[in-house]
Write a protein that binds this DNA or RNA. Structure first.
Lengths: 207, 207
DNA sequence: AATTTCAGCGTACACGTGTACACCATTTTA
DNA sequence: TAAAATGGTGTACACGTGTACGCTGAAATT
């Protein structure tokens, strides 16, 4: 039951996952990454791959799940920082940019497979982003006393803007990233202000 | 000089371009489209491809250019509609959604290659989107008497939101698209309102 | 009319791919 | 301790890929 064998298996499974992740870059996407390349990078024979995954898609979906998880953990970190005081928007953007910097490959994966050719991948990424959006939506609802629709609209728009900025950040240098962060912060303020204004207006005209 | 030959060449070049475009779909991206497949679809021998393009990248960049052009022509149409009266935001979103519906493959191309593995493709798409954004920026500046920075921030955010909605629309049915359009319109109003408010505030405090 | 140009074709090649298969060594089970 | 299960290996195969090369017939040029 201790499982010296299961333990080793988990270890080389990890090796494969990390190998795939490490091979991702600006010049290489998961979809044009071959099973053989991954196995080689992991130091395994090509056919050993099958002891752990049925095919590359299975590996890829695992990566998407992990990336989504990392993203949500990031959100928790941001909330902790916010509780200690500071601008919500500023801290959130900064945290996100740190994520891009230290987890560029995970983010690239999400970004690319979101509009990729596999229905399953698209659904998986879409799901992860939906989780992310929903958590923000809850937060906005409670923090700003907004109605459900408005807070959802705001959360969805904010996530879109932040993701798009993240995508640009991948190709940017430090100075450009700073600029990008500033721009994003201002845009999120536009959205927050607009949501407040228009929500107030519609609730006063309808009730 | 009439060029019965040049004429024919242009014709089969068009055949190749259209063949590539027609092979794009939810399940097939340009990057995993092979030279042989394109040539076959166009009814040519594989090697004839080289009489028109050096490689697939050259074809792809041509497609990106054409897609960008189509996008800008679309903008002109929207402006014409707006001059006849109507909500700027509503008409723009509607026009964009019509573009997605009738030019899905072009849009898919832009969407995917924007975060693809080729630096050249990314640059090309980025350039097209920049043109698109700049035209909107000019318009906002004149129509709303905003300062350059604010109108740029607004234009950039608006384009991001609209593109993201377009991406979702690709996988959506008619009802979902309607919903999507409504959501997008509201979000663009948030942004417009926020830009107005915060621009006014900063200009009154600084001048 | 003779010559040159050139779009399009078919063959051929080396290469990388996924994966089927038989085999081995070691852990696990009986 | 004997038998079974299993992670890892290497070989082998068919397939699709880009593209080099030489050829052909018709258009263009001289």
């Amino acid at each position: 039951m201790s499982g010296i064998r299961a333990q080793q298996k988990e270890k080389t499974r990890r090796l494969l996952i990390d190998a795939a992740l490490n091979q991702l870059s600006a010049d290489q996407s998961f979809s044009n990454l071959s099973l053989r390349e991954v196995a080689k990078e992991a130091g395994l024979a090509a056919t050993s791959f099958y002891r752990h995954f049925n095919d590359m898609d299975e590996l890829g979906l695992t990566l998407v799940d992990e990336a989504g998880l990392t993203l949500r953990q990031l959100m928790r970190q941001a909330r902790l920082r916010i509780e200690k005081g500071g601008s919500v928007i500023q801290i959130s953007v900064k945290t996100f940019m740190e994520f891009i910097e230290s987890n560029g490959n995970e983010f690239r994966l999400l970004l690319r497979e979101r509009s990729g050719t596999s229905t399953e991948f698209r659904a998986a990424v879409s799901r992860e982003i939906r989780y992310f959006t929903m958590e923000l939506c809850d937060y906005l609802q409670k923090a700003n006393k907004l109605d459900v629709e408005t807070s959802y609209l705001q959360a969805n728009a904010a996530v879109t803007i932040v993701f798009s900025a993240g995508a640009e950040a991948l190709d940017a240098n430090d100075a450009e990233r700073k600029e990008l962060a500033d721009r994003t912060i201002k845009q999120l303020r536009f959205i927050a202000r607009g949501a407040m204004d228009l929500s107030a207006r519609s609730s006063s005209s309808s009730g």
